[in-house]
Nucleic acid binder design. Structure first.
Lengths: 222, 222
DNA sequence: GTCTATATTTTGATAGAC
DNA sequence: GTCTATCAAAATATAGAC
C-alpha cells in the first residue's frame, strides 16, 4: 500500500510527475471508482504497466494524491497562523488561506467532497492526521480569541463547517452553477469566489464577535 | 432513459419499492460508479434481471432516485415559504426545512455532494429544474426582505452556499468526524446538527440583517 | 413478474522481453 | 524504466423459460 518510489534518479524522472498529474485529474473528475487506470495512463502518455511500476495499486496511487493534497492544506493554514496578529486578523487569514488553496489546487475540493460522501473510506491515519492539524489550527485561533475576549465560545467543528463547506462547495460546484444559472433571471448573475469569501468572513466573524456589529459596515456580496 | 413503470398493479408491487430503497442506499454509499447492480439486487432481495425489468439501465435507476430526492427538497422549501410570515421568520424556516430534509432523507446529502464533485454529469434538465425551484424560493425570500428593509442586498447563490453547504457537509461527514474527533482533546466533543443549524441561522441573519445586532443574544453553538 | 443462465466488455493487475 | 501481451475477475445487460 506504500508508494515504493524508486531511488534511482536517472533521466529527468518526469514520468512519475506526469503520472501524478494525470491521476489527480482523473480522480478529481471521476472519483476513485470512476477513475480508470487505463485512462490515467493514457492521459499521462505512459503505459499502464508503468502505473504499477510506480505504485503498487490504484488505491495506493489514490492515497498518495489524497495525502499530498491534505498535507498542503495543513501546511498552508499552519503557516498562515504562524504570521501572528490579532485573533480576528488570524481568522480572516485562515479563511483566505483555505480559499487560496482551493483555487490553487482545483482538484482538492471535489476530492474532499467525495471523501466526505464516501464516509472517508479511503482516508488512512496519515490523512486523518493532516485533517486534525487543520482543525487544531482553527481551534487555536478560536481559543486565543476567546481568551482575549474577542470571540465568544464556539465549537471548532461547527465553525469549520461554516468556513470550509461553502468554500469547497462553491469552487467544486462551478459547472453545476453554470448550468443552473443559465436559465435563471439575470439578477442571478453568477457570483465569484471573492463574494463567497467575503460572505464567509462576515458571517463567521459576526457570530463569533463579542463586539456590537457596526451596522452597515459590511458588504454581504459583490 | 425513462423509468418505464409497468402499469399493472397485481400483488403488493413491493418489489419496486424494495429496489428503490436498496438502490438509494447503494448509490448514496458508493456513488454511481461504485454502486454495483448485483449488490443492489442482493440488497433488495430480488434478482438482477428484475432491476432491468423496472429500469432500462443503471443510469436510469440512478436518475429516478436523484430526481425524487431533489423534488422532495424543492417541495419542502416551497411549502415552507407558503406558510408566510416575516422575511426573517421565513429564512429561518427555510434553513430548518433544509436541515430537516437532510435528516429525514439521509441519502440526500452524500448524493448531492457527489453530484457537485462530478460536475453534475448525471443531472438532467428535470433535476436541474428542481434545483432552480429551491434557489428561486430562497431568492424570493431575500427579495421580500430587501423590499421590506429587513435584509440588505445579497447574492442568492452566495447565501445558498452559506446555508446548504454546511448542512449537507455536516450531515454527510458524520463518519469522518467520528474518526477525526476520536483522537482530539475532549474539548472537541462532537457537535450535533442543532448546533450547526443555530450557527447557520445566526451567521446568515447577521450578514443579511440591517438592524444592529443585539450583542450577546445569539449562541454560536450548543 | 420472476428467475436461471449467459453473452460481452471492461478493468485491475502481472509476466516477461528489451 | 518502459513496453507488449495477456490473464482473471468483475460488471452491465439480455435471452428465454416459467
Amino acid at each position: 500500500m506504500v508508494s515504493q518510489r524508486p531511488r534511482s534518479r536517472s533521466g529527468v524522472g518526469q514520468t512519475r510527475e506526469r503520472l501524478l498529474v494525470a491521476a489527480r485529474e482523473e480522480f478529481a473528475a471521476r472519483g476513485f471508482d470512476g477513475a480508470k487506470v487505463d485512462r490515467i495512463a493514457r492521459r499521462a502518455r505512459i503505459n499502464k504497466a508503468m502505473v504499477y511500476y510506480h505504485f503498487s495499486s490504484k488505491a495506493a496511487l489514490y492515497l498518495a494524491i489524497l495525502r499530498e493534497q491534505f498535507a498542503a492544506v495543513a501546511v498552508a493554514v499552519s503557516d498562515a497562523r504562524g504570521k501572528g496578529g490579532a485573533p480576528v486578523e488570524q481568522l480572516s487569514r485562515y479563511i483566505d488561506t483555505i480559499a487560496h488553496v482551493a483555487l490553487a489546487r482545483p482538484h482538492f475540493p471535489p476530492m474532499w467532497l467525495r471523501e466526505i460522501a464516501e464516509g472517508g473510506r479511503h482516508l488512512d491515519e496519515s490523512v486523518l492526521g493532516e485533517l486534525r492539524r487543520v482543525l487544531e489550527t482553527l481551534a487555536a485561533i478560536l481559543k486565543d480569541g476567546r481568551e482575549q475576549g474577542a470571540f465568544r465560545p464556539a465549537h471548532p467543528f461547527v465553525i469549520q463547517m461554516g468556513i470550509m463547506a461553502p468554500l469547497m462547495f462553491f469552487v467544486a460546484s462551478a459547472p453545476v452553477r453554470l448550468r443552473v444559472g443559465r436559465k435563471l433571471p439575470p439578477a442571478f448573475a453568477l457570483p465569484d469566489l471573492e463574494g463567497v469569501v467575503a460572505h464567509v468572513k462576515a458571517s463567521t466573524l459576526a457570530v463569533l464577535s463579542t463586539a456590537p456589529a457596526a451596522s452597515g459596515s459590511r458588504r454581504a456580496s459583490s
